[in-house]
Write a protein that binds this DNA or RNA. Structure first.
Length: 441
DNA sequence: TCTGGGGTCCTAGGACCC
DNA sequence: TCTGGGGTCCTAGGACCC
């Protein structure tokens, strides 16, 4: 039996945890660069605001309805996510952290300890709320796809109190009938259009199709698995995460610039900074990379015709996690791509072909002692930046100064809340109020 | 003025190997 | 008439996820 725990309107809920007066009011959180709406409170959804809507297009509407607007605060959300996941891991032996706001739990054998699984899920829900102020819903079912579906129904139907356990055939059938086919996990826009054209409009319709049909119409083995899972046959297993982090197979750092850039040194600075960040992620999971892609993009919403994006991939002779070396390669790649007199809006660095660090094939010509030295240098760099804050020590070309107001590519973030839980400079202030100060447990 | 940033898996086809 | 039969690895592209 699987459970899917999903935080409600996660980013908005994180902001509300530190600003309780936002409860019951419409709230939205914006993407990087204050670009789009990526998290909406129930009240904001009720106003008709859509996921991914460009901020500038709905600014007036937001103002009219006094919607509270926040820039995204990933330091806060990451930390709050860690707290939720840590608690879940303490209650269940196997947890797969599926995204920043979702986790699958393996509930096999848990009845023995907790009796009814629905009651256990209610306890989890209340405890997460009490410990972190984050509201969650929980779906429980024999397959991951049905657990996702149960979660969706639990979110939608208020009388379920945030938990739905598909423990019988009638319940499964009922839940399948509640969910539009486009809301099934694995059905995106392409497939949804295709399915509607064939009269398949609910999860129940889809579950009634044959495996062979699914294989033919929904992308081969993926579709076949999807339909079997809806029918209650487990095809997907839990991939437990170690200490809440998953070793990635690719690592990227990409950003839209705050303003268009056409000067080479500016874009190089951005690319070097992105390489630095990606290399930090790489070392955190003890990997080395042997494929490095750099891309730069023009404004894709303008009047210019495509192509908008130019990219190149380098195969590195020896896998590495050395920031300096990676910046050198990134610079080579960027030089290859560069177009003069062109305005770029976005750039990115992507690492593929990751290997375990230390396992890489060594170069015939690089002395081992020197490699060890570089490894130590990188470890010291990471330690300093962890201790004193991101960007404390870096490479000049990346121009990442601590607290820098102005790297050229910096994006807008006009409404960011403090990093309440991860930065000493931004800790939550509690106003002392004389003798009437309530005692906190 | 203004439109995010990460990821995953699968398939088909080509190059190359014996 | 008749033109092998297996593999592997890599890449590009397409679908999906949050």
């Amino acid at each position: 039996m699987f459970a899917l725990v999903d935080c409600n309107n996660f980013y908005v809920s994180c902001e509300r945890a530190f600003q309780p007066h936002l409860e019951g009011k419409p709230v939205v959180v914006l993407s990087n660069n204050d670009g789009c709406l990526i998290s909406r409170s129930a009240e904001a959804k009720a106003l008709g605001l859509r996921m991914g809507e460009p901020y500038f297009q709905v600014k007036d509407q937001l103002q009219r309805h006094q919607v509270r607007v926040f820039s995204s605060n990933y330091a806060l959300y990451g930390d709050m996510s860690g707290r939720v996941m840590h608690y879940l891991s303490s209650r269940v032996p196997d947890v797969e952290v599926y995204s920043i706001d979702e986790a699958f739990l393996d509930l096999r054998g848990m009845e023995r300890y907790h009796g009814n699984l629905a009651a256990f899920a209610q306890t989890l829900r209340q405890q997460v709320r009490k410990r972190t102020h984050i509201p969650v819903c929980i779906g429980i079912a024999p397959t991951k796809t049905l657990a996702k579906l149960a979660n969706r129904v639990a979110k939608k139907v208020p009388t379920l109190n945030g938990v739905l356990y598909l423990d019988s055939e009638p319940r499964r059938q009922w839940a399948l009938a509640q969910v539009p086919v486009e809301d099934v996990w694995g059905i995106g826009q392409q497939y949804a259009t295709k399915l509607h054209a064939q009269g398949i409009t609910t999860a129940a319709h889809l579950a009634a199709m044959s495996e062979g049909w699914a294989r033919k119409h929904l992308g081969g083995v993926v579709g076949a698995r999807l339909v079997r899972e809806l029918q209650g046959v487990p095809c997907l297993t839990l991939a437990p995460s170690e200490d809440g982090t998953l070793a990635r197979q690719s690592i990227a750092c990409t950003r839209t610039f705050g303003k268009p850039l056409s000067a080479y040194p500016d874009v190089l600075g951005a690319v070097a900074a992105f390489t630095t960040r990606a290399a930090e992620k790489l070392r955190r999971q003890h990997s080395a990379v042997h494929l490095l892609t750099v891309f730069i993009s023009k404004n894709r919403f303008g009047t210019e015709p495509p192509p908008y994006t130019f990219s190149t991939t380098l195969q590195l002779p020896v896998a590495t996690s050395d920031t300096a070396e990676l910046i050198r390669y990134a610079r080579t790649a960027l030089k290859r791509l560069w177009l003069p007199n062109t305005q770029f809006k976005k750039a990115g660095v992507i690492f593929d072909g990751l290997e375990a660090a230390g396992q890489q094939q060594l170069s015939l010509f690089e002395p081992t002692a020197k490699i060890k030295q570089r490894d130590r240098l990188m470890a010291d760099l990471d330690q300093l930046n962890t201790r004193y804050g991101t960007g404390t020590v870096g490479f000049a070309v990346a121009q990442v100064y601590k607290g820098a107001a102005g790297v050229e590519w910096a994006g807008r973030q006009q409404q960011r809340t403090p990093a309440y839980t991860t930065n000493f400079e931004e800790l939550w202030h509690i106003q002392m109020d004389g003798p009437r100060l309530p005692r906190r447990p």
